[in-house]
Design a protein around this nucleic acid. Structure first.
Lengths: 237, 237
DNA sequence: CTCGGACAAATGGTATACCAGAATCATGCG
DNA sequence: CGCATGATTCTGGTATACCATTTGTCCGAG
């Protein structure tokens, strides 16, 4: 995401900082490294079989992405954003994706539209199977593809960063199945809008999509989580 | 910008990576390090009186900001974006600032509005004196303040990143004085819109502002620069 | 004279040693 | 028994040494 010479390469050397960042990112997003847990350089360096230097670099990358929080002279910790922060980020993501959708309606190629449609179909299909994680991954990939179809690399990059930053909370808050039908409806609508080059309709569906997301996240924080960002949830007596 | 415990602190230790990044950033943006010039770690580390490690970190920060380009196993180089890239980034910046202006109209405090108005006045005043660099700095600060008044830290952060990334090209392309009156007019309009909480008017002025910026940048690339991003402009015969 | 290859210098990448500040815990005093 | 205080340990920050790859150069063959 930061720099990649070959986008589809599965990273030849797993000790490279980018690969380390990818691995740590995955561990954070999947909850293996829960929010608030410290990232001690020596421990994780040894665990991943590398020196502190590349691990340090990987941590900085994640810090830039907002997944970990750096504190001067103290261990970096996995970020634990509160409701307000998450809603702010979602609001920005919404604007970025709205812009992306608009651009996509104007500049998407037929191939790109087909690809997006394929992803949407995959989402709908896997949704029936009930595997939430796959559905979620595909959904994210589809949104990424839509923005990518706008042919604005800078926008795609920033949008991707926000997607990554919000991955975990989106996943956690996506448990409610009640709005599944609306999501699929939005997806169908986006595809239709895309093939029709109907930007207004596209924007409406994206808005609807994000309204649902915002609702889910708010519900998630209200019920499950406690909203304070402090989050010292590691060592209960 | 990336992480700062005390926003107003002038950086106590000038050898800290953030300070190094700031210094290198300034050197890049002011043209001391022209686009395309390599950043050799050892040379610059010695020049700035630090080891390679912190300098390396600073370079990574700048790479994330898009000011330098990292190449595997090769010296990082000062980025030299082409017209297309710059226009893409400006388009994103425009959307971010539009969103910020909208939020500012809704949530800005009286103090914040006053601060923004002060900055606008300073821009107008210094504009009369003719010092382009000061005017430009103040102008950027004002735009930053507007977005900050929207009270969305994530938005402010991303907006700030794009501002920094576009600093140099904005400065270079701002040479034309013909549209100075329009800029000041837009500024006045923004302030009025802000005090009136008139989002529509605010957005119109921001749009106008960015139309002018886009025009200037396009002109700059058409006349002065050659548009290819390759940019091996260092060693003439 | 030109082109090709091999050697040498340079440079980014990584590992490691060292340093300074912070957190923690033991200890002793109130 | 509780709390302040100092020593110890832990941890991030920095400097440095080492390695792998690249690149520039020089020599020689054609």
């Amino acid at each position: 995401m930061t720099q990649n010479p070959v986008p589809d390469a599965p990273d030849s050397d797993p000790t490279r900082p980018t690969a380390l960042a990818r691995r740590l990112r995955r561990e954070i997003l999947t909850g293996v490294l829960p929010p608030g847990s410290p990232i001690k350089e020596r421990d994780h360096a040894e665990r991943l079989g590398v020196s502190r230097t590349p691990l340090r670099e990987a941590v900085r990358v994640l810090a830039q992405e907002g997944l970990v929080t750096l504190r001067p002279l103290r261990s970096p910790v996995v970020a634990d954003p509160g409701l307000a922060e998450v809603l702010d980020e979602i609001a920005v993501l919404r604007r970025l994706e709205l812009f992306g959708g608009e651009l996509a309606c104007a500049h998407a190629t037929a191939d790109e539209i087909a690809h997006i449609a394929r992803l949407a179909e995959a989402v709908a299909r896997d949704h029936a199977t009930g595997d939430r994680l796959d559905v979620f991954d595909l959904d994210m990939e589809m949104h990424r593809a839509i923005v990518a179809a706008g042919h604005n690399p800078a926008l795609a990059r920033t949008h991707g960063e926000y997607l990554a930053r919000l991955w975990r909370i989106r996943f956690l808050s996506a448990s409610t199945r009640t709005d599944a039908e609306r999501v699929l409806h939005d997806h169908r609508g986006m595809i239709e809008a895309l093939v029709a080059r109907d930007a207004a309709r596209m924007l409406a569906h994206i808005d609807s999509h994000f309204d649902g997301l915002t609702r889910n996240v708010a519900t998630h924080f209200r019920t499950e989580g406690r909203e304070r960002p402090g989050g010292m949830a590691e060592d209960g007596p």
